[in-house]
Simulated scan of single mutants.
Amino acid sequence: MIGKILAGAILVTALVAGAAMYYLQVYYFYEPVTVNGVDDVQMTSMVSGQPEPVLYDDFEAIDASSSPIRYRACFKTTMSHAMLTETYQPYESPEPLTAPGWFDCFDATALGAELEAGRALAFLGTRDVQYGIDRVVAITEDGRGYVWHQINNCGEVIFDGQTAPANCPEPPQGY
Rank of each mutant, 00 (worst) to 15 (best):
Q25L: 15
E95K: 12
V41M: 05
V33D: 03
I62L: 03
P90W: 07
D107S: 05
V137D: 01
Y91H: 06
G101S: 13
S80E: 08
E114H: 10
L6T: 08
A113G: 09
A110N: 11
N167R: 12
D39N: 15
D57W: 10
G132D: 01
K4G: 04
L111G: 00
E52R: 10
Y56N: 00
F59T: 07
I69C: 05
T77E: 07
D128H: 11
P169A: 08
Y28F: 14
Q89G: 03
I2F: 12
K76G: 09
F106S: 01
P94S: 04
F59I: 05
D107V: 05
A73S: 11
E60C: 04
V147G: 09
R135H: 10
I10D: 09
E95D: 13
Y91C: 02
Y146T: 03
C168E: 03
A14D: 07
R135L: 14
A17V: 14
L111T: 04
M1Q: 12
I151V: 15
M43T: 04
D57S: 15
Y88A: 05
L124P: 00
G3V: 03
Q25D: 14
I2Y: 02
L111S: 00
P96I: 03
D134M: 08
D40L: 09
P172K: 09
W102L: 03
E114F: 04
G118H: 06
L124M: 15
S67H: 10
S48L: 09
E114K: 12
G125R: 01
I10Y: 02
I10E: 02
T77S: 15
K76L: 12
D40C: 08
A120S: 09
W102Q: 08
I133H: 01
L115K: 01
S48V: 04
D142T: 14
F123A: 02
G125D: 07
G145L: 02
F103P: 06
Y175C: 14
D40N: 12
L115E: 01
L84Y: 07
A19H: 06
Q50E: 15
P68G: 06
E170G: 06
Y91A: 07
E116P: 00
I133R: 01
V33P: 01
T85H: 12
P51T: 07
T78F: 10
G161A: 05
A7N: 08
E31A: 11
M43P: 03
Q162M: 15
A17E: 07
A122H: 06
K76E: 13
P94K: 05
L6H: 00
P96E: 01
D160Q: 11
V35L: 13
E52W: 07
G112C: 06
A99H: 00
S93V: 11
T163D: 13
F59C: 01
